[in-house]
């Protein structure tokens, strides 16, 4: 038996917004630790990893590990029926062929009950090696969203460069070029501020497909801050924390010299 009750149902709605356009369907793995899902886009350029730890839920029960193979378009349609302040409960049997979703309004005067049929998804789980990143940058998530959107007008590639105390985003195309630099702020505890941490103070610059960066920013409402981690010739990590008990992370393979 699996049952997970999420007081802040909007978290699930927001997380799915950040997933559904990248991954058609995925295995949502439920265990006593929580719920996790990983998947790649059809071109295998970006890996998306969602983690919802059991502490995120006010009630969580998972007697045996359960895999929920969910079509994300269908899941999203159902979640759109939930109000932002609804409590969402997910329920499934031990070897389920369907998952039950229950939405309760905040004042408990409306309940909606949905059943989503599960699908068998043949999908490999990838191991993500521990990496020492050359640069870790935290920026307001709305600022990152705006930069990605603005630079997409110039071309299909965005170059992210980190040097001491500064992160620079640039794009070049037929209509011209653009360069947006964010300087590190003094007080890094504030969500409105920018922080830049570097290993060995070595500047780092990588090129990425703007289309994918824009997909990632669909998760902006999950967190005030987004963390970018860069390492030469490695995938970029774009992380949105879900409070203290979850995260939505994207790994984007870089564009490299052919």
């Amino acid at each position: 038996m699996f049952e997970a009750r999420l007081l802040q149902g909007s978290i699930l709605k927001k997380a799915l917004e950040g997933i559904r356009e990248l991954i058609t369907s995925g295995n949502w793995e439920c265990s006593s630790a929580g719920i996790s899902m990983q998947g790649m886009d059809p071109s295998h350029v970006a890996l998306t990893v969602l983690m919802l730890q059991n502490d995120l839920f006010d009630q969580f029960r998972c007697d045996r590990n359960v895999t929920l193979g969910l079509n994300h378009a269908t899941f999203s349609k159902i979640l759109k029926c939930a109000a932002n302040d609804d409590i969402i409960t997910l329920k499934a049997e031990d070897q389920p062929d369907e998952c039950n979703l229950l939405f309760q309004s905040a004042n408990d005067d409306k309940t909606s009950d949905f059943i989503i049929k599960l699908t068998d998804i043949d999908q490999e789980t990838l191991g993500i090696p521990d990496t020492e990143y050359a640069a870790t940058v935290k920026v307001p998530s709305v600022e990152f969203q705006r930069i990605c959107r603005d630079l997409s007008q110039f071309g299909d590639t965005i170059i992210i460069s980190v040097k001491k105390g500064c992160v620079e985003f640039s794009g070049t195309g037929e209509i011209g070029s653009a360069k947006i630099a964010l300087k590190e702020s003094g007080n890094v505890d504030d969500d409105e501020k920018v922080s830049v941490e570097m290993d060995k103070d070595t500047p780092c610059s990588l090129s990425f497909a703007s289309r994918y960066l824009n997909y990632f920013t669909k998760a902006t409402s999950l967190s005030d801050t987004v963390t970018l981690q860069l390492c030469p010739e490695h995938p970029l990590v774009v992380s949105y924390d879900i409070g203290d008990n979850g995260s939505l992370k994207y790994y984007l393979a870089p564009k490299i010299e052919e």
């Binding site: 790649m40 071109s43 295998h44 350029v45 970006a46 890996l47 490999e124 789980t125 990838l126 191991g127 993500i128 090696p129 590639t157 090129s207 497909a209 490695h234 995938p235 790994y251 393979a253 870089p254 564009k255 490299i256 010299e257 052919e258």
Partner: peptide, 14 residues
Amino acid sequence: MLGQAKISAFFSPK
């Protein structure tokens, strides 16, 4: 000329 790398070049199945 830049080419798009794939995730499989960096991460392997568990």
